[in-house]
Deep mutational scan, measured.
Amino acid sequence: MAAGGDHGSPDSYRSPLASRYASPEMCFVFSDRYKFRTWRQLWLWLAEAEQTLGLPITDEQIQEMKSNLENIDFKMAAEEEKRLRHDVMAHVHTFGHCCPKAAGIIHLGATSCYVGDNTDLIILRNALDLLLPKLARVISRLADFAKERASLPTLGFTHFQPAQLTTVGKRCCLWIQDLCMDLQNLKRVRDDLRFRGVKGTTGTQASFLQLFEGDDHKVEQLDKMVTEKAGFKRAFIITGQTYTRKVDIEVLSVLASLGASVHKICTDIRLLANLKEMEEPFEKQQIGSSAMPYKRNPMRSERCCSLARHLMTLVMDPLQTASVQWFERTLDDSANRRICLAEAFLTADTILNTLQNISEGLVVYPKVIERRIRQELPFMATENIIMAMVKAGGSRQDCHEKIRVLSQQAASVVKQEGGDNDLIERIQVDAYFSPIHSQLDHLLDPSSFTGRASQQVQRFLEEEVYPLLKPYESVMKVKAELCL
């Protein structure tokens, strides 16, 4: 049975990233139509530049190519590739079939990587351009969430054990800070992308030097003109047959890092959902379990974690691919890159769409948070109580021993009897502590235990987050809708 299948058929496997999760716009960027249309555009740009620099290419040939950029006979191309065992030459023939007058000058002087690699770089750039505003929107939604809850005390956790208090907004800023680093890295790697350009079979530009009869300047002009037509500021000066596969490492490393950030955020949300302090959106008709109707599973956060793990592992592909590119190139890269580049971007696209949807509907339960604080705060307040007693004339050592005994009794009630923490009640009825009984409410005010959390939130948002989001103001209103 021949390899390949009808990918629109229910009898043929289709990647869930495309069929179930990723956005239509990201799927289109990695589609065959987008790819092969870009090949034709690159052939047109090459012909236009070659004509401008004096090669015998007519206006009629150029116009014929322009008129057929979208006229792609995919069936013919597939048949040609089956016959020739070469995808680029299959599309040269297919393009030439609908451009008979231009057929002889299509791909003039070029090698397969002229269309293959340059198209990949265009796709990487455009895919990054799709991700950047999506990530900015996630940051914006979380920034709104953090600002609104900047002063809401909550129990902090280290080692997932109760620690000092923080605020809900401050905790959210930990998430935002990681995503801001990801946004900066995505922008950097996007701006650092260079075009492969017009380089020939081993990167020496020998074929173009021959076409222009040894004119170095025209060869350099050709490279520059096509690079500018493709919208790049610069091209690699040095290439082998391909652009260095280190570029793929750079791009997928940034995406993998984004995956790590999203995994951490969504894990926190899942843990908070278990504590009943916070939940992701839950639709009115949504079913959490087929057997347990009360369940409210954090399905979206779980999906993000599941896909983020996949995204983090994909960076190993370009690392290994770059390491086995012998001399000017081997074909070890080809099949692998067809999979890992598309999957990385479709996965990143999915987790950003999902995280935006989550961040637009996060639900906080202040009463649950308050109750958990009441359970733990008495123990945390013991040092403040000791200091207040010393100020009232008591002995630190005597007070410490009193607190120690009462704390152990209260802990026994919590752990052995399943009761509430009654340390404060014990202190309130103990005559030894009568000098500070009137101060206990103040000493137990949760806001006095959150330090500068709310001020940190305000400063972080104003100095770091809002300036970073400013270039994306025009796209901030787009909502994230999930079908599944």
Rank of each mutant, 00 (worst) to 15 (best):
A2Y: 13
G4C: 12
G4W: 01
D6S: 08
D11T: 13
R14K: 06
R14M: 14
S15A: 15
S19Y: 01
S23A: 15
S23I: 14
P24L: 12
E25L: 08
C27D: 01
F30S: 04
F30N: 06
F30Q: 03
R37F: 13
R37V: 01
W39F: 09
R40S: 04
L44Y: 03
W45F: 09
A47C: 01
A47D: 06
A49F: 00
A49L: 05
Q51I: 10
Q51G: 06
L55P: 11
P56R: 05
D59P: 09
E60W: 12
S67M: 14
N68A: 13
L69G: 05
I72Y: 06
K75M: 00
M76E: 03
A78G: 08
E79M: 03
E80A: 14
E81V: 02
K82G: 12
H86P: 08
H86C: 04
V88Q: 15
F95A: 04
G96P: 02
C98H: 08
C99Y: 01
K101Y: 00
A102H: 04
A102R: 06
A102F: 14
G104L: 06
H107C: 15
A110N: 00
C113E: 06
Y114C: 05
G116I: 03
T119N: 14
D120E: 02
L121M: 00
I123F: 11
A127I: 06
L130P: 14
L135A: 09
I139W: 13
R141I: 13
L142E: 15
A146Y: 11
A150V: 05
S151R: 03
T154Q: 11
G156M: 02
G156A: 04
V168D: 05
V168R: 09
G169Y: 09
C173M: 05
L174A: 02
D178S: 05
D178M: 00
C180S: 11
L183T: 09
L183G: 08
L183S: 02
N185W: 03
L186E: 11
V189Q: 15
D191E: 14
L193S: 09
R194T: 04
T201Y: 14
T202G: 05
T202N: 01
T204A: 03
Q205F: 02
F208Y: 04
L211E: 07
F212D: 00
E213Y: 00
E213M: 13
E213W: 06
D215K: 15
H217M: 04
V219I: 02
E220Q: 09
E228T: 07
R234D: 04
G240C: 13
Q241G: 09
T242Q: 01
T244W: 06
E250G: 10
V254K: 05
V254L: 15
G259T: 06
S261F: 08
H263E: 09
R270M: 04
L271M: 10
L271R: 08
L272C: 15
K276R: 03
K276C: 00
M278T: 06
E279Q: 03
K284E: 08
Q285S: 08
A291D: 05
P293R: 10
Y294Q: 08
R296M: 13
S301D: 02
L307F: 13
L307I: 11
H310R: 11
V315S: 06
M316C: 08
M316T: 07
D317T: 03
F327I: 02
T330P: 11
T330G: 02
D332P: 01
S334P: 10
A342M: 00
E343A: 14
L346G: 09
D349S: 10
T350P: 03
E360C: 00
Q375S: 11
F379H: 15
A381P: 15
T382L: 08
S395N: 13
R396S: 01
C399E: 13
V405M: 14
L406Y: 02
L406M: 06
S412P: 06
N421S: 14
D441H: 00
D441Y: 03
L443W: 15
P446S: 12
A453Y: 05
A453S: 12
Q456V: 06
Q456I: 11
Q458N: 11
R459A: 05
K470P: 07
P471C: 04
Y472T: 07
K479R: 14
L484G: 09
